[in-house]
Amino acid sequence: MRPTRGHLAWLITALTLWALLPPAAHAAWEPTKPIELVIPAGTGGGADQMARLIAGIAEKHKLSPRPIIVVNKAGGAGAEGFLYVKGKKGDAHTIIITLSNLFTTPLHTGVPFSWKDLTPITRMALDQFILWVNAETPYKTAKEYLAAVKEKGGTMKMAGTGSAQEDQIITILLEQSQGVKFIYVPFKGGGEVCVNLVGNHVDSTVNNPIECVSHWKAGRVRPLAVFDTARIPDADWKDIPTIKEAIGADINYLMLRGIFGTPDMPKEAVEWYQGFLKKVYDSPEFKEYLSRGALKPSWLTGSDYVSWLQGAEQLHKDLMTKGGLLKK
């Protein structure tokens, strides 16, 4: 095809499409090309799993007229993914799944973006955090364990995912409320963290339930407390006390698993994604996934979601200021 002719054909088609547009605009918006679902984290992690599950459910139940393409952009603690979506202003075919790095990455690294740059679509779930120790240790309760930490005077090792992210925030909160000191050892992923606990290379972790559940069932690790105001209702988990019950401290932290669109995403598109994601959310597969990983089902959209996000951002700012994790 010679460029001039191609250009002409393109022009003609564009004009034809434009002529056809007005009636189409009245109908509900639908994706007209493959949807790109960006993951601001590496392959195999929690956000990655959920994103691929969403793509899988959409494929299985034919929920979207166009396929969903999952793309990992993990660079700079997720900054790469966020900046990529931020740069696609008005694009109706790009969405992003977020985790807590939506708040922590800009605060810690100073990378210029905020959740306000993106269009909130929906909150899918909230992930719990649990304090784990190796099952061979004598600590049966969080109280016993923290007493031991205090006694050992800052030589006990707490492992977590990444630096200046949720795991370290929780560790610092625990330190400040109990007047103890941990050696915080950052690892690359949650699975690795739990295995280092099983191998006795560290003394405790603050893993998400799904990262440690199998080792727990195999009798290798022991959950001591949930960092939430209420116990996890699922049968397997309901015997684990909340941190308040265990040590009387209010250290509550939940991690966002939400979906955002590009800046200024058209309203019709946002509505379509909400409908689509609701169908995913209501599917038995998604429900099963949540219950197995002890994630909190937390569907939330619209202005409620926005005000929740505002609260969450403020919370991270406060926590990270307290922990001295803000960018200097």
Partner: peptide
């Protein structure tokens, strides 16, 4: 890439016109 593996490559006006 685009159809089978669902790996997007950099695209331009021609692909946009084709609906990708």
């Amino acid at each position: 890439f685009e159809k089978w593996f669902l790996v997007p490559m950099p695209k331009g006006p021609l692909e946009t016109w084709l609906g990708y």
